[in-house]
Design a protein around this nucleic acid. Structure first.
Lengths: 154, 154
DNA sequence: ATTTATTACTTGTGTTTCGCAAGCAAAAAT
DNA sequence: ATTTTTGCTTGCGAAACACAAGTAATAAAT
């Protein structure tokens, strides 16, 4: 699926890729909520429909934002992981959270307000470092489960 | 139009408001490209359809992100301006631009790369300050064109 | 070994969002 | 008085999204 860019504006072009209901949500789920399989996503609070999920995962892979792989010792599950290109979206996601924390709480009072949000509020850079490091660690252990060389694209 | 929030996640909730093709683009056009009238938007590079523009401006006003007003000396034009709530979206827009600059240029080579983008790349905070200040100045002069007390909502 | 359950999807059918073209009323310019 | 500009609305087709059901491959349970 060939991406159409509305114009040459960098801001608008980013939204040509990311500006819909699901792309950034899925990336957030992987980055912050440890989702890595199809099942994981379908069980999320956001409750994405499976056909949408399927098409979005395809798009994300086409854009080079995620990789799809199978572990040799588990032929049932497909594992989705973020690329560095997607990890660079972290600042955008953090800023969305900060804005939400500041301005959406009044119209949407049940929005979560845990220690994570407090850290984000008080030290955005630290929050970013923490989740990125956690993600890279998780990725390393997942990869280490078995010799990764046997993985496959299909 | 009542907004539906998918869940209690702050990140997802921000996207429940902003996660579509146009909301952030329109805000960017106002913030960075001096657009303030209906005509201005229809003439933009992004070429938004008038019915979509109309409905998005309505939504933005409902969310308290923009205000609609008429200058007493110009009964034809309607002026749209960003609220502080919308100006707080600046960091998100900047991060979108930074990501675009870093990762989209290869697949979309005609993306602009002017002095503005160089400043954004080298000093994001300064870029943010500059455009916010410019916006507030523009707003002040627009308001000063005539005694603002006569403005109207309809 | 056979049945059952899990995982990762696809397919079909609405509904909502978006895009294109045209039209229309009020204000302003000619 | 007529034309143009501005800020919209309306109608219709296309695309994105939502809901429900079904399928094939693997794995677990009996």
């Amino acid at each position: 699926m060939e991406t159409k860019y509305r114009c040459n504006c960098p801001f608008t072009s980013a939204l040509d890729v990311l500006g819909d209901k699901w792309m950034l949500v899925i990336i957030k789920q992987m980055l912050i909520e440890d989702k890595e399989t199809f099942k994981d996503f379908t069980e999320s609070d956001e409750a994405i429909a499976t056909n949408i999920l399927s098409s979005k995962l395809k798009q994300l892979e086409e854009f080079g934002l995620i990789t799809k792989s199978k572990l040799p010792n588990n032929k049932k599950s497909v594992y989705y992981h973020l690329t560095d290109k997607a990890l660079d979206l972290t600042p955008i996601i953090l800023e969305l959270g900060i804005w939400s924390d500041k301005h959406l709480r009044e119209v949407h009072p049940t929005i979560v307000n845990d220690e994570g949000m407090q850290l984000l509020r008080t030290d955005k850079a630290e929050f970013g470092r923490v989740i990125e490091e956690k993600y890279r660690e998780k990725l390393a252990t997942t990869m280490a489960i078995s010799n990764w060389g046997d993985s496959d694209k299909s």
